[in-house]
Nucleic acid binder design. Structure first.
Lengths: 224, 224
DNA sequence: ATACCACTTACATCTCTTGTAAGGTTTCCT
DNA sequence: AGGAAACCTTACAAGAGATGTAAGTGGTAT
């Protein structure tokens, strides 16, 4: 049951949308908090997001832009602003579809369904900016180039991308990559970090893994 | 330069569309033959297809449906029929977007651009019905299950899917997998076919590779 | 019936990945 | 400045997985 998060401040419309999606067998959730929408959203791990444009605080456009940088779920913008320039802005910011209110439920459902289908094939793909990683095969794609990482390096990269822009603690790396919290030998992590960095560097992604002394590692994806 | 194929029987509109896309730095090609559109289209290896609905011969809907079974490029339906039911039909058949004529060039370009961006991540994916194969990593996906093939088996599978529904000759397999036309030892092909079939069978795709005595092999994807 | 083609299994080789070891470099604190 | 702790790098060897060879079985067409 795909999870759809609805970001809409009009309570009445929000409930209506939730109802529409729930009737169609979706796990529809409405957000009623408009502070830190971004964090709330990410925590819910949505399969798709419906976004209004006129929101208290950050606009839907700003939200869309920053969500698209670090997420890989589709975003559908639903708004009362119906000019071409609104549509172009939305699509330009990475929105996957743009519909205007009022919108027939069937149209909304059909568009939603189609997006979920398209993105279904990419369920295993993590995305940060122009970089994407297939977590099944550890295929890294960046600027039309492809690099296939080995299993260990891939797992490290996966963790770094999942937690971006936060840092990943060493203990967490040990737990997730080697299955043990007790990192008897720190060296093994360093060796693999070294290998991964070398590969990334040859690939054109120099210096994107930064060490945090005593803590762990972070991804540094400013330039990309 | 992404290649866009335009399937539209109205000459005037077709030229206008081609011009719009060419100005936007696309490799835009119009189809003027409406017999065997499907074969013509596939030969051009498009990155995206713009499809009219009212065509001589097969309708755009029929075309869309059969293209979607064997291809992996996005399809945008552009039509004068503007009812909700038309849109629902199109989306239901797998169309990636639905726009009505007359359509502002900027809107068309923005929608096209977005589709190309979304599908860009899947450039390396072959698709036949419910089966897909990533030709970089040889990740095979079928019914939410994932199987990662070894390089040799993956290359064989790739050829079979690329040429579907035609057969692949043994000489072609030797050329593409082992880099030599002269198949000194036929056994190596048989061994790898055997291994591939075993893996596919365990994966729930039993008997989909059929031998053609003296010729080669075909994919048999009726049931899937 | 027989010759040809296709299929299968076992085994050895090879490649790629991983962890270990050892030595070097950077950073931080006194 | 000096030393310790944390981090980085390179080389090497063991291990796992993939590939090709060999040899024998089974099926099909004439």
């Amino acid at each position: 049951m795909p999870r759809i998060i609805i970001v809409e401040d009009d309570i009445y419309l929000r409930e209506e949308l939730i109802h529409t999606f729930q009737k169609a067998k979706y796990d529809a959730i409405g957000l009623s908090e408009f502070e830190n929408v971004e964090d709330h959203l990410m925590k819910q791990k949505p399969d798709l997001v419906i976004l209004d444009v006129n929101l208290p605080g950050k606009t839907g456009y700003e939200l869309c832009k920053s969500l698209k940088v670090k997420s890989s779920f589709p975003i559908l913008i639903l708004t009362a602003r119906d000019t071409l320039s609104d549509e172009l802005t939305a699509l330009g910011l990475g929105a996957d579809d743009f519909l205007t209110k009022p919108c027939h439920p069937d149209r909304l459902l059909a568009r939603t369904e189609r997006l979920l289908q398209t993105y279904g094939k990419m369920r295993s793909i993590l995305q940060i900016g122009a970089v994407s990683l297939d977590t099944d095969t550890y295929k890294l794609v960046f600027l039309d180039k492809v690099l296939i990482l080995s299993e260990t390096e891939g797992k490290i990269m996966k963790l770094l991308m999942e937690q971006f822009p936060s840092a990943v603690e060493k203990s967490e790396l040990f737990r997730n990559v080697w299955g043990t919290e007790e990192f008897v030998d720190e060296n093994i992590l360093q060796v693999n970090m070294s290998r991964l960095r070398k590969n990334l560097s040859d690939f054109g992604m120099d210096g994107i893994i930064r060490n945090i002394r005593g803590k762990g590692y972070v991804l540094e994806v400013d330039g990309l």
